[in-house]
Amino acid sequence: MRRHKSVQYLILALMLLVGGYAVGRSFASSGDVLRPGDKPPSFRLADLQGEAHTLEEYAGNPLILNFWGTFCPPCREEMPALQQQYEAWKDEGLQVVGINLSEDRHRVENFIRRIGVSFPILLDTNRRTERAFGLREYPTTYFIDANGVIRQIVSGPLTIEEIEGRVKSLLESA
């Protein structure tokens, strides 16, 4: 009888485990969209000079990761603001990286030259990185702290003031 009892407990425990997992999963967010508090997925992308860079290179200092394309009007619009803020805060340790949305290199170069962007631009290919980040809208900007944790995600164009406020809180927390 004792043996039966322990078998009974084992079965119930197993079912609680499997069932609890199944039910718990239904609460979990579906899909792979990033949220504040997550760590962004790693990437290895080429810059305009053809050299590869990884996300890990930027660890240790606050980072603004901006996904943009020349085909997206709000992306073009916010570029000067990003550039201005990059210049204003780069001495404090702020890094800004623009990831282009899988366009041809010459297209990106022409645009960068015309606008006068000096922060590093990386080139996504085949939309791989964009998919890994689960991007829904362009532009999307990730504010990542020195520990590599996403603090804020903003979809849509940013003004100088909007960037500034967020940069300050990133730098303060560092």
Partner: peptide
């Protein structure tokens, strides 16, 4: 996909 339907299944 709701938790209560999954609970019923479990």
């Amino acid at each position: 996909e709701s938790w209560w339907f999954i609970t019923l299944m479990v």
